[in-house]
Each structure stands twice: as structure tokens, then as C-alpha cells.
């Protein structure tokens, strides 16, 4: 098995779904390389395959063709190893337990991520402080604004301090102050050697990353 210094490496990865028996290409052959300590943004029009690419990295979707490696592990054959390396935010509005508080949600997912019991409270306070969520912790998630939920989703991805953050539209619905907090958090994450791979429609936010990859064209700038 080949090992790579890249945190995330996609080589000619393609995804074809079958819809009503007919093949539909969700992701045209696409390559990407993101190093450790780097922030990288996937940009592209709707339907270009940004979310599909992120879901392949997150082990949620198997590629039809190509090679996808995360921290040297194959996302298909070593998916559990990959999941130990990543924190994921899929950006969907309803991705929390609505009846539970933000703190309870974070604690639940921290347990699944094997954060030691004694460290969970501290880990929650730390990410909440970093993302401006301290006042939200005691609030049931159904009562939080979309912007707060978006930041909470990123906080959940960060809670176990994984090596790689995989984030779909982390800036969506977030106000200017929240965006600043997110940008700072991602920069700090990368400065500590972590990797951030995010998808966004917002070119201004994308330009704050170390690299921008245009999906659909294979261009990197």
C-alpha cells in the first residue's frame, strides 16, 4: 500500500450514479492534492461535484473510478482508518438532535469520536469559545439560528481535534462576525499542522484559503 505525505489526495476520481437505470456523472474525473497544514477551498458551480468529492473524502460515497487517499489511507478499503483522521461538517441544516442542547449534541458526538470522558467538557468549552458559541451551549439546537448551527456544525467537526477537517459550505448563513471567527479558526488549525478542505460558493471566502481548486475544470490557483 502506498503512503503519501499529502493529507488528502484524489487521483482521477470519478463518480457515476445510476438514476432510473441510466448512468449520471456526479463528479467528472478529478484530481486534488492538499498537504498537511494547508487550507484548501473547492469552488465551482452547482452540480459540479463539490459535495460528492467531499463525501468521497469523508468515506460516505465510494468513487466509481480513481484513487482517493486520506492521510495515506485508502477511503474505500481503509475507511475506518480514514474516519479516525477526519472531522466532517456537511452543512445540512438539520444535522443535529433537535430536542437536545448544543452542549449535549457536542458531548454525544465527542463520545462517538472517543474523546476521553474527563476531557469532553473542556473540549466543548474550547471549540465553543473559538467559534463564539458559548452562549448557545445550553440552548436546544432547534432554537438556534442558521448561522449558529453552521458554526456548531464546524465545532462538532473540530471537537476531537482530527488531523483533517472536511467542510461543506461552512460559511453558508453565517454573518460577518461569524465568518471572521471561522476564518481565524481555520488559519489556527492549519498553523498547528491540521488540514482544512472546504467547499464554498463564496469566492471571497475561498480566497482566504492557501489554495483554491476549481472543480469541473481541474484548475488550481
Amino acid at each position: 500500500m502506498s503512503r503519501s505525505a499529502d493529507a488528502v489526495r484524489l487521483e482521477d476520481v470519478r463518480k457515476v450514479y445510476r438514476k432510473s437505470g441510466r448512468p449520471a456523472e456526479a463528479l467528472a474525473p478529478f484530481s486534488l492534492s492538499v498537504g498537511a497544514g494547508e487550507t484548501s477551498a473547492l469552488v465551482g458551480p452547482n452540480g459540479a461535484g463539490k459535495t460528492t468529492a467531499l463525501k468521497i473524502v469523508a468515506t460516505l460515497v465510494e468513487p466509481t473510478e480513481g484513487l482517493a487517499m486520506v492521510a495515506g489511507h485508502n477511503v474505500v478499503s481503509e475507511s475506518l482508518h480514514v474516519r479516525r483522521m477526519i472531522g466532517v461538517s456537511l452543512g445540512t441544516k438539520r444535522s443535529f438532535y433537535w430536542r437536545l442542547t448544543a452542549r449535549h449534541n457536542l458531548a454525544f458526538f465527542a463520545t462517538l469520536e472517543n474523546v476521553p470522558r474527563k476531557r469532553i467538557a473542556l473540549a466543548i468549552e474550547s471549540v465553543a469559545d473559538e467559534l463564539g458559541l458559548v452562549a448557545c451551549l445550553g440552548v436546544p439546537t432547534r432554537r438556534l439560528s442558521r448561522g449558529a448551527l453552521a458554526r456548531l456544525s464546524v465545532a462538532r467537526a473540530m471537537i476531537a481535534r482530527p488531523r483533517i477537517l472536511v467542510l461543506d459550505e461552512p460559511f453558508a448563513s453565517v454573518d460577518a462576525h461569524g465568518r471572521t471567527l471561522l476564518r481565524r479558526a481555520f488559519a489556527r488549525w492549519a498553523a498547528r499542522g491540521g488540514t482544512v478542505l472546504l467547499a464554498t460558493h463564496d469566492l471571497a471566502e475561498a480566497s482566504s484559503c492557501d489554495s483554491v481548486v476549481r472543480i469541473g475544470s481541474g484548475m488550481r490557483s
Binding site: K55, L60, L80, R83, R84, V88, S95, F109, N114
Partner: peptide, 8 residues
């Protein structure tokens, strides 16, 4: 999807 991306 978030559950199945956990370490369990």
C-alpha cells in the same frame, strides 16, 4: 451520515 463518519 455524521454518525457513520465517526470512529465507531
Amino acid at each position: 451520515e455524521l454518525l457513520v463518519t465517526s470512529r465507531v
